[in-house]
Design a protein around this nucleic acid. Sequence first.
DNA 1: CTGACTATGGAAACCGGTGTCACCATTGCC
DNA 2: GGCAATGGTGACACCGGTTTCCATAGTCAG
Lengths: 358, 358
Amino acid sequence: MRHHGATAPAKGTTMALRAKRTGQPTINDVARLAGVSKKTVSRVINRSPLLGGATREKVEAVIAEIGYVPNPQARALALRHNFLIGLIHDNPNAQMVLNFQQGVLEAIRDTDFALVVRPLDRKSPRLLEDVRHFLERQRLYGVLLLPPLSENDELAALCRELGCNYVRMGSAKLDDPAHLVESNDRQAVAAAIGELAKMGHRRIGFVAGPAGFRSAHERQMGYRDAQAEHGLEQGAELVAVGDYTFDSGRAAGGVLLDSAPRPTAIFASNDEMAAAVLHAARERGIEVPGDLSIVGFDDTAIASHIWPPLTTVRWPIVAMARAAAMKLIRPEAAGEQPSLFLSDLIPRASAAPPRQSN
Amino acid sequence: MRHHGATAPAKGTTMALRAKRTGQPTINDVARLAGVSKKTVSRVINRSPLLGGATREKVEAVIAEIGYVPNPQARALALRHNFLIGLIHDNPNAQMVLNFQQGVLEAIRDTDFALVVRPLDRKSPRLLEDVRHFLERQRLYGVLLLPPLSENDELAALCRELGCNYVRMGSAKLDDPAHLVESNDRQAVAAAIGELAKMGHRRIGFVAGPAGFRSAHERQMGYRDAQAEHGLEQGAELVAVGDYTFDSGRAAGGVLLDSAPRPTAIFASNDEMAAAVLHAARERGIEVPGDLSIVGFDDTAIASHIWPPLTTVRWPIVAMARAAAMKLIRPEAAGEQPSLFLSDLIPRASAAPPRQSN
DNA sequence: CTGACTATGGAAACCGGTGTCACCATTGCC
DNA sequence: GGCAATGGTGACACCGGTTTCCATAGTCAG
């Protein structure tokens, strides 16, 4: 692969040789060996249609022979944009983030793009400053914003200001369709709780996500919709607030389980908190699903790893991530990807009819 | 892209304006406004010690005023390396990967580096080709290799061939210290099983990781060490093999639990398989820790999220990741970071003395 | 047969930084 | 006071691509 100048070097090409020694072959090497100009090689690489077949084949042969790969930094400099997609998130749920990464990577497979991850602290007062710094320094091709950061309109405004493409993931119409991949959390939660109602549950508790999160709000609205539609018991004591973390979920679950009368089912706004409610139930000797049904949201790995396996709403995050990435790198083909994704209930063992049904 | 020549006003000015309009201020703008040369601005940015205080302040004032940020692509082109660190992994455990990302990000905070993630399929026949393609295209500053991929010597050889810095994470002396961050899995497992022995367990099962993995091998050696040291019962029926995934762990746990006499404790080579052993126990109505103690390895989030909370060996992956990243970006300061990390046992509720001790 | 038009490819400028080296102004020293 | 050593600065080439502009050959219509 490396050509050391053992073969008779052409005249006065010390420069070219030095270049070759320090790195991989450049477009100049290809041009010289193929007997054409840089520009022609560039046209071959970029599949310009204005190129004759004979020249193209000759250049391609040389490229293959010496193993030439265009330097992405040089390309980025000339094109004024690079081939990096940023993933900006602050999510306590590892599995969700990794699933999202997986979806993005599926979308950029076989392209020149790569994925740069950038977790941030949503509570930091320097959040906007950090993002600005990140975007200005890296000059990414575009960024993907994950909830809950995606719900921050200031962040989106910052992206626009800096001229950075972006797509937001959200549970509501946060932005115009070109910048949004949306899920119908509200309907999905309502449907899931509807299933609990059909099993015979009348008193259903709800562990909400943190105030100020759009996803938390939408999911809670779904809970209210179901309460109204199925005539379920209502009351402020049926709702406890968490922040999507396990610990907060355990505390919230404890509050709900210590209230009297106790709910016969609890819906938690994500799987991690649902697992924590299960913890809280076990700490109190409450049997699941015998004495208490639990339903979560996300269908991340933890849902099937705990015992009993968690009935949960599957949030199609890999597909959503793929669609979001496609919107970013091929906006002209955005129509091929849906922008609204539907979540559906995955029945497992943590939800069952209440013991004393009726 | 194609401009129709019909409207062709003064071209020279158009170009200059477009250049300024499309982008942020450049080093040339700073130089002009500060009345110095590009090179001097470059010296300010790179903290060259040869700079007069007055000039430096003047340049810094201009930089702050117009909000200049160096273009990383241009820098990368001139320096012949960029500021991207690649993370190459194929790990079924999301939490572990995310913890690792966190550690790397801690190390590169306040530097110009960014993290590019690249999951791969270790079973793919195109593995080496994929990595080669990735490294050649992105021309990263360096890469970090996570187990199990880090154990692949061909991958490391490829990095060397392509002139790419790398650091491997491993459970054994896979490489020279400059390219390795190591953990003492063998001792840690031996110590953990020693604790089970001290509780009174004599018949301890072991769920091994997949054959061919160095970490799996080291952990199993630790098991054998403990058996020998504490005079524990031995036998092929006490060992079942998994592949670090939940499903494999459930199957392996089932085999161990269906054997007679049943082990009173099981050590699983990672937390995910330990959680799966717990599943298998529950499916059989076996109480944990009453009838069966379970110990895992990693101390990822799942360990504290399942019930009962899992006694496990804490693998200090965040610290290891930080150290690995430091080795990559500041090899001269590698001495400040330890290269060998010790894992210790975190006692929780899943391990207890056997019910009929003696 | 000639002029216009198209297809093709090259020279040179450009993207925005860094490295090399020469230059100048001090300063230190004898 | 002269000379060397030194520190600060700028001119210019370069990194490896893309783009603009232009030259040339070939084709076709009139």
